[in-house]
C-alpha cells in the first residue's frame, strides 16, 4: 500500500510520521506539499503534527483551506484511511471531517509527556491490532488539545463506538477524557497523542507501532480479501 503525509507550512512531525510508517510497515510513503489537488494514488493519508500557519486564528483554521484538505475530503468520502495526529486532528475538526473542536488545555499549560491511553474501540481500521481495553503509552505535546463536544455529540460518539482512545488520566480537560475520535464511517481518525513518537525501543515506548500496523493490515488484508473473493 501507499501512504501520503501532507506537509503544511509549519508542519514539524511530517518526517517523523513518514519514517514511523516506513519502519513499521515497510510501505512506500510520499511527503506531499499542501497545494496537491489529487491524492487518489494513496491508500492512506496522514495529516501530521506541528503548527500549520503558526496556529494563527485557531489551530488548523487556515490549513483547512489548503487544496490538499479538499483532496483529503474527497478520498475520505471514497473510503480511504485518513489519520490526523495532533495539529492534523485540529485540521480535521476545523474542516468538519471530524466532529467537535480542540480548545486550549483547561490548565493553560503546554503538556509534553508520555501518557497512558485506553483503547476504547479495537475494531476500527486504526486500532484492530490492539487488544480490547489495552492500555498503551504514547507521548503528547500540545497546548490546545482539550476535546470539546456538546452533550448530544458526546452521547452519539459513545453510543456509536467512535471514541477510539481515552486518556487514563485526563491531561487537558477533554470531555469524557477523549484522546481520539473516529468519523461515522470509521475511516477517519484524529488523535492528539503522537503514535509516531512511540515506534522504537529507544523512544521509551513502542506502543504506537500497532496503530500503523492496524492500518497496514486493514488495507492489505482488505485488498487481499477482495482480490480472492
Amino acid at each position: 500500500m501507499k501512504w501520503a503525509v501532507v506537509v503544511f507550512p509549519g508542519s514539524n512531525c511530517d518526517h517523523d510520521a513518514a519514517q514511523a510508517v516506513r519502519d513499521v510497515t515497510g510501505d512506500m510513503v510520499d511527503l506531499v506539499w499542501h497545494d496537491v489537488t489529487d491524492l487518489a494514488a494513496y491508500d492512506a493519508i496522514i495529516l501530521p503534527g506541528g503548527f500549520s500557519y503558526g496556529d494563527y486564528l485557531r489551530s488548523g483554521a487556515i490549513a483547512r483551506f489548503s487544496p490538499a484538505v479538499d483532496a483529503v475530503a474527497k478520498e475520505a468520502a471514497a473510503g480511504k484511511l485518513v489519520l490526523g495526529i495532533c495539529n492534523g486532528f485540529q485540521v480535521l475538526t476545523e474542516s468538519h471531517l471530524l466532529p467537535g473542536a480542540l480548545l486550549r488545555n483547561d490548565h493553560l499549560q503546554f503538556r509534553c509527556e508520555t501518557v497512558e491511553l485506553i483503547v476504547e474501540n479495537h475494531t476500527s481500521p486504526f486500532t484492530c491490532a490492539y487488544r480490547p481495553g489495552e492500555r498503551i503509552r504514547i507521548p503528547i505535546a500540545h497546548g490546545e488539545g482539550r476535546y470539546y463536544a456538546d452533550e448530544t455529540l458526546r452521547q452519539r460518539l459513545a453510543a456509536d463506538g467512535r471514541i477510539a482512545f481515552r486518556y487514563a488520566d485526563n491531561p487537558n480537560g477533554s470531555v469524557d477524557a477523549i484522546a481520539g475520535v473516529l468519523n461515522d464511517r470509521g475511516n477517519v481518525l484524529g488523535l492528539m497523542p503522537h503514535p509516531e513518537r512511540a515506534v522504537a525501543a529507544w523512544m521509551t515506548s513502542q506502543d504506537g507501532r500497532l496503530l500503523f500496523e492496524s492500518m497496514h493490515r486493514f488495507v492489505e488484508e482488505g485488498s487481499y480479501a477482495r482480490a480472492n473473493a
Binding site: 486564528l57 485557531r58 483554521a61 466532529p99 467537535g100 473542536a101 480548545l103
Partner: peptide
C-alpha cells in the same frame, strides 16, 4: 466560515 468556529 473562517473568523469563528461555530462549534465552540
Amino acid at each position: 466560515r473562517v473568523l469563528s468556529n461555530p462549534v465552540m
